[in-house]
Simulated assay, not measured.
Amino acid sequence: MDASLALFVEQCRAQCSAALANLPADGPGMPASLSAPLAHALGGGGKLIRPVLCCAAARAVGGVEGVDEGGDESSDGAAGAVAPALELIHTYSLIHDDLPAMDDDDLRRGRPTLHKAFDEATAILVGDGLQARAFELIANAPGLSAEQKVRMVKVLAQASGFAGMVGGQFVDIQSTGKALDLEALQAMHAMKTGALIRAAVALGGIAAGASDTQLNALDTYADRIGLAFQVVDDILDVESDTATLGKTQGKDEAANKATYVKLLGLEDARAQATRLLDEALGALAEFGESADMLRNLGRYIVERDR
Results as ranks from 00 to 15, higher is better:
3 A>C: 01
5 L>V: 06
6 A>R: 11
7 L>C: 07
10 E>C: 11
10 E>M: 12
11 Q>E: 15
13 R>L: 11
16 C>Q: 10
23 L>M: 07
24 P>C: 00
24 P>G: 00
27 G>Q: 11
29 G>R: 04
30 M>P: 01
31 P>G: 03
32 A>F: 10
34 L>W: 14
34 L>D: 04
41 A>D: 00
42 L>R: 03
42 L>I: 05
43 G>N: 04
46 G>T: 05
47 K>T: 06
47 K>E: 03
50 R>W: 09
52 V>R: 00
58 A>E: 10
63 G>Q: 04
64 V>W: 15
65 E>S: 10
66 G>W: 08
67 V>Q: 07
75 S>Y: 09
77 G>V: 02
78 A>Q: 05
79 A>N: 06
81 A>N: 13
87 E>N: 12
90 H>T: 03
94 L>G: 07
98 D>Y: 11
102 M>F: 13
103 D>K: 02
104 D>S: 01
105 D>N: 06
106 D>E: 12
108 R>G: 04
109 R>W: 07
109 R>A: 01
112 P>K: 05
113 T>F: 13
116 K>Y: 06
118 F>W: 04
118 F>K: 03
120 E>W: 10
121 A>E: 12
121 A>I: 04
123 A>P: 13
128 D>H: 03
130 L>Q: 07
131 Q>E: 14
133 R>D: 02
133 R>N: 02
134 A>K: 01
136 E>G: 03
142 P>M: 13
143 G>I: 05
145 S>G: 15
146 A>C: 07
148 Q>N: 03
151 R>E: 15
152 M>H: 04
153 V>W: 09
153 V>G: 05
157 A>D: 12
160 S>E: 04
161 G>Y: 09
164 G>E: 02
168 G>R: 00
170 F>W: 12
170 F>G: 01
170 F>P: 00
172 D>R: 08
173 I>Q: 14
173 I>V: 14
173 I>D: 06
175 S>D: 09
178 K>A: 12
180 L>C: 01
180 L>K: 01
181 D>Q: 04
182 L>P: 08
184 A>S: 13
186 Q>E: 15
187 A>K: 15
189 H>G: 00
189 H>Q: 09
189 H>L: 03
198 R>I: 08
199 A>Q: 09
200 A>Y: 08
204 G>N: 08
206 I>R: 07
208 A>P: 13
209 G>R: 12
218 L>K: 09
219 D>H: 09
220 T>I: 11
222 A>D: 00
224 R>P: 10
228 A>K: 01
229 F>N: 06
230 Q>L: 04
231 V>P: 02
231 V>S: 03
231 V>T: 01
232 V>D: 00
234 D>G: 02
237 D>G: 04
237 D>A: 02
238 V>R: 12
238 V>I: 15
240 S>V: 08
241 D>P: 10
242 T>N: 12
245 L>V: 04
246 G>A: 10
251 K>V: 14
254 A>V: 14
255 A>T: 05
258 A>R: 00
259 T>A: 09
261 V>E: 03
262 K>S: 13
262 K>Y: 06
264 L>E: 08
265 G>K: 11
265 G>D: 13
266 L>D: 05
266 L>Q: 11
269 A>Q: 04
271 A>G: 08
274 T>W: 06
276 L>K: 10
279 E>S: 09
282 G>N: 08
285 A>H: 10
287 F>H: 07
288 G>F: 11
289 E>I: 08
294 L>E: 11
296 N>A: 13
297 L>R: 00
300 Y>F: 13
301 I>Q: 08
305 D>Y: 08
306 R>Q: 11
